[in-house]
Simulated scan of single mutants.
Amino acid sequence: MNHRIPAVIAVLAAVALAGCVSSPRPVQVSAPPGLASSEALTWVRKDGQSGRANPALADQFAADRAACVRAPGDNAALREAESCMGQRGYALVPASQAAARAAQYRRMAGY
């Protein structure tokens, strides 16, 4: 009687069972806190001022945006322009946090 046959069967069974072991679930990597990837982003002046009540600031923002943002409308284009706009005094923030961030910048600027 051949004693290798049970050993071969045991190895084949182990290999077959190894294929049944489930792989670990994929880990979902989330966006940084407060920055959901689907949430709209917007620009806030780093001095906290708003162009809504100041036409000169609104005009300056329009010029800065035209110079920095190649394809307005999506978060990817805004992220590409982040360095250029940052040099011009703007921060890119989630739209839901814009008012709070502007208030924080005003406090830091002494307004």
Rank of each mutant, 00 (worst) to 15 (best):
A63T: 13
R70V: 15
A76L: 03
A18M: 05
S38W: 09
G51D: 03
R101N: 06
Q104E: 15
P26G: 08
G86E: 10
C84I: 11
R4T: 14
A7M: 15
P24K: 12
M108K: 11
S22C: 07
A81S: 12
P33T: 03
V8W: 13
A99L: 08
A10W: 12
G89D: 05
R65Y: 06
G110W: 01
Y105E: 08
H3D: 13
F61L: 11
L35E: 13
A91I: 00
V15T: 08
D64L: 09
A100I: 03
W43E: 01
A91T: 07
P94N: 02
A63H: 06
P94C: 00
R101P: 03
K46Y: 00
V21I: 15
Q97P: 04
D74I: 01
R107C: 04
A63L: 09
A36G: 14
L78M: 14
A99H: 02
D64R: 06
R65T: 01
Q97V: 07
A31P: 06
N2V: 08
A58L: 11
R25I: 04
M108A: 15
Y111G: 06
A14I: 13
T42E: 02
M85P: 08
G51M: 08
A36H: 14
Q49W: 00
L57K: 11
V44K: 01
V15P: 02
A53P: 00
E39A: 10
R52D: 02
V93S: 06
A67Q: 11
N2K: 10
S38E: 15
A98I: 07
Q60K: 12
Y105L: 05
R4L: 14
N75Y: 03
A67I: 15
S30I: 02
E80P: 01
Q28Y: 10
D74N: 15
N54V: 11
D59I: 03
Q104F: 05
D64E: 05
P32D: 10
W43T: 05
K46F: 01
L35H: 14
G89P: 14
P6F: 13
Y111V: 02
S83C: 03
V21Q: 05
I5P: 00
